[in-house]
């Protein structure tokens, strides 16, 4: 265990957590308002640790949706983790299965983006990934607790404009990656396809559809460029 890389992982992730905090607060507040108890609200953040799936489960709980329905919805919303996992797996092939299990539990959008950007830039480090995951997990638990404590005392912070925290966070992670023609093309294709798919196809399928299309387009362009050289 390399302590230095572990702390680098924490340090590299903390700035991004400023954008996650309002979502944890909002989740805690909204979960109280639909009637989940503080214990249930926190338990979900500790066990599921997936913002989008947790948010979408709340109206389903309040409408009395069945357990299978709620779990299947969580599965569908989180299918993007499969793609993240596929792209991260080659870096982790030297690790034991229990280590992979531990590290994959903490793989959220933000910790994945920080971890793989570092892996692609200067090399993969399991200690760095663990640090990033710990920063993400603790932030999510603390902000959920904050939301529970605030309860109905304040209005949903997302309604003040803090819902923009998520897009702003992802832009901070995305833009520095656009350093060559291929990446730019991937971004443009993903943007075009995701917007068109989001307005025409119900549900969250647009994430998977756009990601596959754009990554394939990037792979083909890069392959063609390599042939020329």
């Amino acid at each position: 265990m390399k302590a230095k890389e572990f702390f680098e992982g924490i340090k590299g992730t903390l700035p991004i957590m400023v954008g996650v905090f309002p979502f944890g607060l909002a989740y805690g507040i909204v979960a109280q308002s639909i009637g989940l108890t503080p214990g249930e609200t926190l338990l979900m953040s500790l066990l599921v640790f997936a913002g989008a799936a947790q948010f979408i489960s709340l109206p389903m709980f309040s409408e009395g949706a069945g357990m299978a329905m709620i779990a299947i919805t969580a599965l569908l919303i989180n299918l993007r983790h499969l793609l993240m996992g596929i792209s991260l797996a080659p870096y982790m092939k030297g690790l034991s299965l229990p280590h992979k299990a531990l590290l994959s539990f903490g793989m959220a959008d933000e910790t994945y983006a920080v971890t793989i950007s570092r892996a692609q830039a200067i090399g993969y480090s399991a200690a760095f990934q663990l640090g990033s995951n710990v920063a993400g997990y603790v932030t999510w638990a603390v902000s959920t607790t904050g939301g529970i404590l605030l309860g109905s005392r304040i209005s949903d912070p997302l309604s003040w404009g803090l819902d923009f925290a998520m897009p702003a966070t992802f832009l901070a992670l995305l833009i520095p990656r656009l350093t060559d023609k291929c990446s730019l093309l991937v971004c443009l294709v993903a943007a075009g396809v995701s917007v068109l798919a989001a307005v025409t196809i119900p549900g969250k399928w647009y994430i998977i559809i756009a990601c596959l299309t754009a990554a394939v387009a990037g792979g083909i362009l890069e392959g063609a460029e390599n042939d020329e050289n």
Binding site: M84, D109, M166, P167, L178, S194, G223
Partner: peptide, 23 residues
Amino acid sequence: FKRFLKHVPTAILTALIAPTLFA
């Protein structure tokens, strides 16, 4: 497959936010 995988992070990050910004 490796060339495809390399672009997955950029593609996912874009797909997660573009609809929020444009629609």
